[in-house]
Design a protein around this nucleic acid. Structure first.
Ligand SMILES: [Zn+2]
Length: 499
DNA sequence: CGCATTTGACCAGCGC
DNA sequence: GCGCTGGTCAAATGCG
């Protein structure tokens, strides 16, 4: 209130023992506001000394409390401005109950400090927890992303691998076309077919052990928009072999051949054939006959028929070229049903036929397909060859083919004795066995394979074309197909015999 | 007579 | 370059 002397305040750290050493002189002494060591034993002593248990928060003992006026001034000077507004601003506080109030103030301050520190620590702790959880989540997310990245990488690898395989196969199949283009630009503008040999599949059959005979297998199906162009040009070349030369490609051609037991000199496959030549092949006393398809004027499909040297009952038939006309129902039915089998050949031989062909090796194409053990892909011949050996009596042609049962239509199945394998208990198996028991089936199978290999990848919508039904999309159901190719078909000997 | 088959000739590719 | 071989042509022949 009436403090005329406002001494400068000095805040120093003070031990409780120092208090007695520095008696405060009234009015002249520079009041030193000492910071308190609350845990000092001396301070407790002072508390006990105080009769009313009132002690100053600053341990400034009011020795001259008797002097009300002076002490009041003194107390006012020694009040610590905590900036917390903890002290009563009234003069009554300093005069009447200074110790109680100071104690309360002290408690408040301590509590506040404690609360403040506690809150501070809590906040820090929360921040730490939050940071940790954040780190954990980030780490988790990182792991997840890493995992996803690995998966994507694996997928990419697989896709790349498939792409390369497709590319290889496409390259193999397109080489003939490229050759045609380079040979004559007019061919590209010609609406007529390019060549009989384009997009052909030629199968070579191992006749016994060492002798390799070749039979040409033609495509069993209707004209493909692309293939028509190829086939028709070949039909032109039919008349003169010289014109066909440009289409005779030096490129290795894929071939598919079929061995089947048959006493008949010919196996009817639904097509009409005209014999245009016969030769005695070296190493085989049996003559080799050459046939052309006569179902259409310009059909480039040819086939070769020869008996096996070791086993005269085995007839080796090879188709070559693509039909430029729809096939009769009896032929397309089998071609459709067998086109799926060709898918397996292609899928498994797509890369092999190209890679291995150059190595002059014989590859078991279907070795990876346990259910089709008789088919082999050979490149020891001038062409990549697919060989279907259907002559083994014990061989059961079992494959998880994309099999369209409703499309099957074999109205002219011969009534030949059929030997069913033991494992045939399924009705579908019985049916397929019946189908397969027809020697014509082997021919149709080869034709289907041939047509599929020779056909462009975009096998679109030709329902009449066996290759067009080739389920590349793989949407059809996979049904087991068991084929038993054993029975023989008596034949009239005419190449025109229908199914 | 027309069509399919036969068969010797021809051609091209390939290896030596 | 020559011979061998596979593949094709086309005249001759056979058949319905
Ligand atoms: Zn044809």
């Amino acid at each position: 209130m009436e403090n005329h002397h406002q001494p400068r305040r000095e805040l120093t750290l003070l031990r409780s023992t120092d208090l007695d050493l520095h008696p405060i002189t009234e009015h002249h002494a520079v009041p030193s506001i000492k910071e308190v060591d609350f845990f000092s034993s001396s301070s407790r002593h002072n508390i006990s000394d105080t009769p009313n248990s009132n002690y100053n928060i600053n341990h400034l003992q009011p020795r001259h409390t008797k002097d009300d006026d002076g002490s009041s001034t003194l107390f006012t000077d020694h009040l610590v401005n905590t900036a917390l507004n903890l002290t009563s601003p009234t003069a009554q506080f300093s005069r009447s109950a200074p110790n109680d109030e100071n104690l309360k103030t002290m408690v408040c301050i301590i509590t506040s400090i404690y609360i403040y520190i506690y809150m501070h620590l809590k906040i820090k702790e929360n921040i730490l927890e939050f940071s940790l959880s954040l780190c954990f989540q980030l780490r988790k997310e990182l792991l997840r992303l890493h995992e996803e990245n690995c998966k994507l990488r694996t997928m990419l690898d697989q896709i790349t691998k498939n792409y390369h395989q497709l590319q290889l196969f496409a390259t193999l199949q397109k080489k003939p076309y490229q050759k045609v283009e380079t040979n004559g630009g007019q061919r590209l503008l010609d609406t007529r077919p390019c060549t009989k040999l384009d997009a052909k599949v030629v199968a070579s059959v191992y006749d016994g052990e060492e002798h390799l005979t070749k039979v040409n297998i033609g495509k069993q199906g209707g004209p493909d928009p692309v293939e028509d162009v190829l086939d028709q040009s070949s039909s032109q070349s039919w008349g003169s072999s010289k014109e066909a030369k440009p289409s005779e490609l030096p490129v290795k051609k894929a071939r598919v051949s079929v061995r089947a037991r048959s006493e008949a000199p010919l196996i009817s496959d639904g097509c009409q054939w005209r014999k245009y030549g016969q030769k005695i092949a070296k190493g085989n006393p049996s003559p080799r006959a050459y046939y052309r398809c006569t179902m259409s004027v310009g059909c480039p499909v040819r086939k070769q028929v020869q008996r096996c040297r070791e086993d005269k009952s085995v007839l080796i038939t090879t188709y070559e070229g693509n039909h430029n006309h729809p096939l009769p129902h009896s032929a397309t039915g089998m071609a459709n049903s067998t086109s799926a089998a060709a898918a397996m050949f292609l899928s498994s031989s797509g890369s092999t036929s190209k890679n291995e062909a150059l190595n002059n090796t014989t590859v078991g194409v279907l070795s990876s397909v346990p259910h089709i053990p008789m088919a082999t892909l050979s490149s020891s011949a001038p062409f990549p060859t697919i060989t279907l050996d259907m002559t083994n009596d014990s061989c059961v042609f079992t494959s998880p083919l994309p099999f369209h049962a409703p499309t099957l239509n074999f109205p002219q199945l011969p009534a030949h004795p059929i030997v069913f394998p033991h494992k045939m208990s399924h009705p579908l198996s019985m049916m397929t066995a019946t189908i397969a028991s027809n020697p014509n089936f082997t021919v149709a199978l080869a034709a289907a394979i041939s047509s599929i290999i020779g056909a462009p990848n975009g096998n679109d919508n030709n329902s009449s074309n066996g290759a067009s039904l080739f389920p590349l999309n793989g949407t059809s159901n996979l049904l087991p197909v068991e084929l038993k190719l054993e029975t023989l078909i008596p034949h009239s000997g005419s190449g025109l015999s229908p199914l």
